[in-house]
Measured scan of single mutants.
Amino acid sequence: ALRETGVIEKLLTSYGFIQCSERQARLFFHCSQYNGNLQDLKVGDDVEFEVSSDRRTGKPIAVKLVKIK
Rank of each mutant, 00 (worst) to 15 (best):
A1L: 14
A1M: 04
A1G: 06
L2Q: 10
L2Y: 08
L2S: 12
L2G: 08
L2R: 12
L2I: 07
R3S: 03
R3K: 08
R3L: 03
R3I: 03
E4R: 15
E4F: 07
E4G: 15
T5F: 05
T5E: 05
T5I: 02
T5Q: 09
T5N: 04
T5K: 15
T5C: 08
G6C: 01
G6E: 00
G6L: 00
G6R: 00
G6Y: 00
G6K: 00
G6P: 00
G6T: 00
V7R: 13
V7P: 00
V7S: 10
I8P: 00
I8K: 00
I8L: 09
I8Y: 01
I8T: 01
E9F: 15
E9M: 07
E9K: 10
E9L: 13
E9Y: 08
K10L: 06
K10S: 12
K10D: 14
K10T: 07
L11M: 14
L11G: 01
L11P: 01
L11E: 01
L12C: 10
L12K: 14
L12A: 15
L12P: 02
L12F: 10
L12T: 05
T13E: 03
T13P: 14
S14A: 09
S14V: 03
S14P: 06
S14L: 04
S14D: 09
S14R: 04
Y15H: 12
Y15T: 09
Y15N: 04
Y15L: 04
G16S: 01
G16V: 02
G16L: 01
G16I: 01
G16T: 01
F17L: 03
I18Y: 00
I18C: 09
I18D: 00
Q19G: 09
Q19I: 15
Q19F: 09
Q19H: 06
Q19P: 00
Q19T: 14
C20F: 11
C20T: 12
C20Q: 06
C20E: 05
S21P: 07
S21H: 03
S21N: 15
S21V: 07
S21T: 08
S21D: 14
S21F: 04
E22A: 09
E22H: 02
E22W: 04
E22P: 03
E22L: 07
E22C: 08
E22D: 15
E22F: 02
R23T: 06
R23V: 06
R23Y: 07
R23W: 04
R23A: 06
R23K: 06
R23Q: 10
R23N: 03
Q24W: 04
Q24D: 15
Q24E: 08
Q24S: 13
Q24I: 09
Q24M: 14
Q24G: 15
A25Y: 15
A25I: 06
A25Q: 15
A25P: 11
A25T: 12
R26T: 11
R26D: 04
R26I: 07
R26L: 13
R26H: 13
R26W: 04
R26N: 04
L27A: 03
L27W: 03
L27Y: 14
F28C: 06
F28V: 08
F28L: 14
F28S: 11
F28T: 06
F29P: 00
F29R: 00
F29C: 01
F29I: 02
F29Y: 03
H30Q: 12
H30E: 15
H30I: 05
H30W: 13
C31G: 12
C31D: 03
C31V: 08
C31W: 08
C31M: 14
C31I: 02
S32Y: 10
S32H: 04
S32T: 06
S32P: 06
Q33H: 06
Q33L: 04
Q33F: 13
Q33D: 02
Y34S: 09
Y34P: 09
Y34M: 12
Y34T: 10
Y34Q: 11
Y34I: 15
N35I: 01
G36W: 03
G36N: 11
G36I: 06
G36E: 13
G36V: 06
G36M: 05
N37A: 10
N37P: 14
N37D: 02
N37K: 11
L38K: 15
L38R: 15
Q39P: 13
Q39H: 15
Q39K: 06
Q39M: 10
Q39L: 07
D40N: 10
D40E: 05
D40F: 06
D40G: 12
L41V: 12
L41P: 02
L41A: 04
L41F: 08
L41C: 14
L41H: 01
K42S: 14
K42Y: 10
K42N: 08
V43K: 07
V43G: 06
V43R: 09
V43P: 11
G44C: 05
G44A: 05
G44N: 07
D45K: 01
D45V: 05
D45T: 12
D45C: 07
D46F: 10
D46T: 13
V47W: 00
V47A: 01
V47G: 00
V47Y: 01
V47H: 00
V47L: 11
V47N: 00
E48H: 10
E48W: 02
E48N: 08
E48G: 03
E48Y: 03
F49Q: 00
F49W: 01
F49E: 00
F49S: 00
F49P: 00
F49N: 02
E50A: 11
E50R: 07
E50T: 15
V51N: 04
V51E: 10
V51D: 01
V51P: 15
S52K: 15
S52Y: 11
S52L: 05
S53I: 14
S53Q: 09
S53H: 07
D54W: 05
D54G: 11
D54P: 05
R55S: 10
R55A: 05
R55N: 10
R56Q: 10
R56W: 02
R56S: 11
R56A: 09
T57V: 05
T57G: 11
T57M: 12
T57R: 13
T57A: 12
G58Q: 09
G58N: 14
G58F: 06
G58M: 03
G58D: 14
G58L: 06
G58R: 04
G58E: 09
G58H: 08
K59F: 05
K59G: 12
K59M: 07
K59C: 05
P60R: 11
P60T: 08
P60K: 03
P60M: 15
P60Q: 14
P60D: 09
I61Q: 12
I61R: 11
I61S: 11
I61D: 02
I61H: 12
A62E: 01
A62N: 01
A62S: 02
A62G: 12
A62M: 01
V63Y: 04
V63H: 10
K64L: 05
K64I: 02
L65N: 02
L65S: 02
L65I: 10
L65G: 02
L65K: 01
L65A: 12
V66R: 06
V66H: 06
V66A: 10
V66S: 07
V66T: 05
K67N: 05
K67A: 11
K67G: 06
K67M: 03
I68T: 09
I68N: 06
I68S: 09
K69D: 07
K69V: 03
